[in-house]
């Protein structure tokens, strides 16, 4: 690389993350809406049935995971659409940095804004459902490994549906089936602990899937963006 060109790859990655973070902080309501949606969906379950503590404890991992899945779908529309509308995305595609790297930055920022808050909030919701402490730890660990994957896979869907009518519903239709393994392993880890078994296999599978999806998804999403922007 040209020595005068001080922008290294990690610099540009940080720049994208900081930019998206800053933009979101100027519009905090968007981030909070997702979070409130997450809490609301989880709270609807006990209301829709007899709040028997044993049943609640049993369904808690699944409910929290499904709510996290839906909440992350909700915010996917914002991932590229604003940048698409004001032309920033076009500039990113023209930039000398690889588009996959910039997409990776956007995925990280999206996770920090929509995934991480869910992870931090999940133990509280778990307590509401009477999940014991060791289950809560595994729930948090699973969500920490799983939510970045939701952002990564979601980025592919968001890129494919960029600028389409009815894009919001469509993106859920495309992405949710692909996220089923995340849901199974994530909720399965907590289930295993509650059944006094080891959560390690499920968490290991989640970790493996995370590595694969973080390696592949930015590249695929970049390809999808090129298709959508032609």
């Amino acid at each position: 690389m040209n020595p005068q060109d001080k922008m290294s790859l990690s610099d540009s990655l940080m720049l994208v993350i900081r930019r998206d973070w800053l933009l979101a902080m100027r519009r905090r309501a968007d981030v909070l809406t997702t979070l409130v949606f997450f809490v609301m969906v989880v709270s609807l379950f006990p209301l829709s049935m007899e709040p028997d503590p044993n049943v609640l404890r049993k369904i808690a991992p699944g409910v929290v995971w499904v709510a996290a899945l839906l909440a992350s779908m909700l915010s996917l529309g914002r991932l590229f659409s604003a940048d698409h509308a004001d032309g920033t995305l076009e500039q990113m595609m023209l930039a000398p940095q690889p588009l996959a790297l910039l997409v990776f930055g956007k995925i990280v920022a999206h996770w920090m804004l929509s995934g991480l808050p869910l992870v931090l909030l999940a133990p509280v919701l778990g307590l509401q459902f009477g999940v014991p402490t060791e289950g809560l730890w595994v729930l948090v660990a699973g969500l920490l490994l799983g939510t970045p994957m939701l952002s990564a896979i979601g980025a592919i869907g968001a890129a494919l549906t960029l600028g389409l009518r009815g894009g919001g519903v469509l993106v859920s239709l495309l992405v949710l089936p692909l996220c089923i393994p995340v849901l199974i392993f994530g909720a399965g880890a907590v289930d295993a602990v509650l059944a006094a078994k080891s959560a390690a296999p499920n968490l290991a599978l989640l970790g493996a899937a995370l590595v694969v999806s973080l390696a592949a998804a930015p590249w695929v999403a970049a390809q999808a963006l090129r298709i959508s922007m032609e």
Binding site: I156, L160, L174, P177, L178, V220, Q223, A224, I227, S228
Partner: peptide, 11 residues
């Protein structure tokens, strides 16, 4: 065609 193709491959 191209968008659906990418989705089919990911799938």
């Amino acid at each position: 065609d191209r968008a659906a193709a990418l989705l089919a491959i990911v799938g």
